[in-house]
Design a protein around this nucleic acid. Structure first.
Length: 691
DNA sequence: TAGCCCGGCGTTTTT
DNA sequence: CGCCGGGCTA
């Protein structure tokens, strides 16, 4: 039955009928289970499937909910709308595009495209890239859109403030929007912002969607930004059957617009709302939970909820001190090997978390050297590889050959002698005749640079061929033509390095991903494939972590769990990171990040810090992170009893540690004493001294 | 036009 | 320490 195997709070959330509901779901308390069962319960009590809208942040989460709902209620899977915010908005805009000046086939620009557009804006507006870094400008524009601020509004605001920075940003924003609309493209921020604007502007439309989605469910509500918050508010305004699930203690994305007050103020937004807190944890030991609680309780902006568990209190929580980052890495590897040898653990039971990607290097070196299998998550994503990006850019251009931004990106890729000057000339022609850059190519003939003209004509011919094939041939075949044209496979084969080998594999993977798309997607249109790439680009590490130690940043760890977790670099200035230390709000977010990391552990949790660390070539001495202090662990510092260390035992005398077994209070050492006798010693009772 | 060298810079990342 | 981007040179 749908209500089977639920604890009382979970059951209450699942059975709650109409009206606003907020579920504070602590780490490991069965959040997804509640969402899935709630959807199933609505369906079971005769709610029409297409009345339900469930939104999440990642495709992974959406896919999991969908899968589990399908398992519970197989017959209705297609009709409940479960997707990310961005997928939902894309669907909305492609359906309702006529109301605003939008072309249904709009392309979604990713952050690379976005930066290219911004660079062009800077160039045209004669703004120094060093004073206005494209990434900063992108942040500002995204931030504005997350807060539903158009360039127009921003311009007015900037005039009121009157400083150069704001006016410049608003100028760039204005030109940027013009360029996007000329290219028939929307960025991620536009998707949500335009959806909200349309719903606000057209009451009939709003009413239609309010009637369509009588039940709204939002996952990870603590991560919503203002635009998303308004979107949800609008749609659920009529029936107020809004159910939000989240954990304020796990809000770690304020720097990309998430607003923790959305979850903290829910009860003010919806005065009659039901509040349920899920506090029974099914993941960790009491030790881990109480340690994590001692840390998180230092935050002020939170709603108090102390997790508890019926799990047995085995395992341990320990502090691990190292000399430097290499020592840190090798100590951790020693621990892992020791545990693998003495317990029935697999490498994939272990995870190493760090605050910054730069820290992964020393681990990578050490893991390679020790031959312990490992995987670094998030280092480079599939669609970030240059060769893949190039191919996708060609596909985007085939989709819209009028897109001058993409044109400039691919016209000289691979290098074929078309430089800045030639492009400038093309641009002049294009502006004169009010045509696209591609259309301008035939007019460049009267030039004396023969090579450039030949190259351009060859390029243009190739694009024409593809455009003619576009409607008769599948995406896979077009892609293969592009790959052949780029000459990548040959080039990489001749290079024949480890890296080029990988590139060939990437291209093959892309082709097979396209084959998959054409096989399983309801649409076979290039436009829909490009949407798919823009929105669902997580060719995830799905089962690649099997049999390997997982290394990743703390941000990426949210939602996952491991038997043993090492949180590394717990030093003031690194974690919490130096930029956050003087800002109380940022510091609280660092603490939440720490909390997220700690609550990933099922049995063993190691808090690691290093007295010395070399970052960017500079070596600095460190003091332990305040989070270690706040954890109030007795620093029994068992890590001082390393293999190879010399110790003095009150009865057996001098000896050398040859092996470590167990951890915490159970730590036993095998010691080879001077009389050649080997003994197993329980550290807790033996009064060992270091030599 | 392309390739090389030098200087600046460095938190986290999904859609 | 290593990457990226700008400017200079062949």
């Amino acid at each position: 039955m749908i209500t089977k195997n639920l604890n009382p709070s979970q059951l209450e959330a699942v059975l709650h009928n109409n009206g606003p509901l907020i579920v504070f779901a602590g780490a490991g308390t069965g959040k997804t289970k509640v969402i899935v069962h709630r959807i199933a319960r609505l369906l079971f009590f005769d709610t029409v499937p297409y009345f339900i809208l469930a939104v999440t942040f990642t495709n992974k989460a959406a896919a999991e909910i969908k899968m589990r709902v399908t398992n519970l209620v197989p017959e209705v899977k297609q009709n409940v709308w479960i997707s990310t915010f961005h997928s939902f908005c894309t669907y909305f805009l492609r359906t309702e595009y006529q109301k605003i000046n939008l072309n249904q086939n709009f392309l979604i620009y990713n952050s690379y495209d976005q930066k290219n557009v911004i660079k062009e804006c800077l160039f045209e507006l004669n703004i120094d890239e060093n004073k206005f870094k494209p990434s900063t400008v992108a942040d500002k524009i995204n931030h504005a859109k997350n807060n539903l601020k158009t360039s127009h509004v921003m311009t007015i605001e900037a005039k009121n403030i009157g400083d150069i920075f704001s006016t410049t940003i608003s100028d760039i924003y204005g030109l940027y929007q013009k360029k996007l609309s000329r290219a028939n493209a929307l960025d991620f921020g536009d998707l949500v912002m335009y959806t909200v604007f349309m719903l606000q502007e057209y009451p009939m439309l709003l009413e239609y969607y309010q009637e369509k989605y009588k039940y709204v469910i939002v996952d990870e509500y603590q991560d919503t930004n203002y635009a998303q918050y308004i979107l949800i508010k609008l749609i659920s305004e009529r029936y107020k059957n809004i159910c939000v699930v989240g954990d304020d203690d796990q809000s770690i994305y304020s720097w990309r617009g998430a607003n923790i007050s959305n979850i903290l103020n829910f009860k003010n937004d919806y005065p009659k709302s039901k509040i349920i807190k899920l506090k029974q944890n099914y993941r960790s030991t009491p030790k881990i939970l109480s340690t994590a609680y001692r840390v998180i309780r230092n935050n002020n902006s939170r709603i108090d909820k102390q997790l508890w568990t019926k799990n047995s209190d085995d395992g341990s929580v320990e502090i691990l001190k190292s000399k430097n980052e290499n020592d840190e890495a090798s100590k951790i590897i020693d621990f892992i090997l020791l545990n693998i040898r003495h317990a029935k653990y697999n490498f994939s039971d272990f995870a190493v978390f760090y605050r910054t990607n730069a820290q992964s290097r020393s681990f990578e070196d050490a893991f390679k050297r020790s031959k312990v299998p490992y995987i670094i998550i998030g280092a480079q994503k599939f669609y970030d590889h240059a060769e893949i990006r190039d191919i996708i850019a060609y596909l985007k251009f085939i989709h819209n050959p009028k897109d001058d931004i993409i044109f400039k990106k691919i016209v000289n890729t691979p290098k074929r002698g078309i430089g800045k000057m030639s492009i400038k000339m093309l641009e002049k022609i294009a502006i004169d005749k009010d045509i696209s850059l591609l259309e301008a190519i035939p007019f460049i003939n009267n030039l004396n640079k023969k090579d450039v003209v030949t190259s351009l004509n060859f390029f243009s011919q190739f694009i024409k061929t593809l455009l003619e094939l576009k409607d008769s041939v599948c995406i896979k075949e077009i892609t293969e033509k592009i790959v052949a044209y780029l000459g990548y496979l040959k080039e990489f084969k001749t290079e024949n390095t480890f890296e080029s080998q990988r590139k060939i594999e990437n291209i093959k993977e892309l082709i097979s991903a396209i084959v998959d798309f054409e096989k399983y997607s309801s649409s076979k249109l290039l436009a829909d494939y490009l949407t798919h790439v823009a929105l669902m680009n997580d060719t995830d590490f799905i089962d690649e972590s099997n049999g390997k130690v997982t290394l990743m940043t703390l941000h990426l760890a949210k939602g996952l769990e491991f038997n043993s977790v090492f949180i590394c670099g717990l030093e003031e200035g690194l974690f919490p990171i130096k930029e956050s230390i003087l800002n109380p709000e940022a510091l609280e977010e660092e603490r939440r990040l720490m909390y997220v990391g700690m609550t990933r552990a099922k049995k063993y949790l190691y808090l690691c810090w290093s007295a010395e660390r070399t970052i960017y070539g500079k070596t600095k001495r460190n003091i332990p992170s305040r989070f270690i202090i706040e954890s109030e662990l007795k620093n029994e510092d068992s890590s001082q009893y390393e293999v190879g260390t010399l110790v003095l035992h009150p009865t057996f005398g001098k000896g050398k540690i040859t092996e470590r077994i167990g951890t915490g209070d159970d730590l036993k050492l095998i010691i080879l004493f001077e009389n050649k006798q080997e003994k197993k010693i329980l550290v807790k009772i033996a009064r060992l001294k270091l030599l």
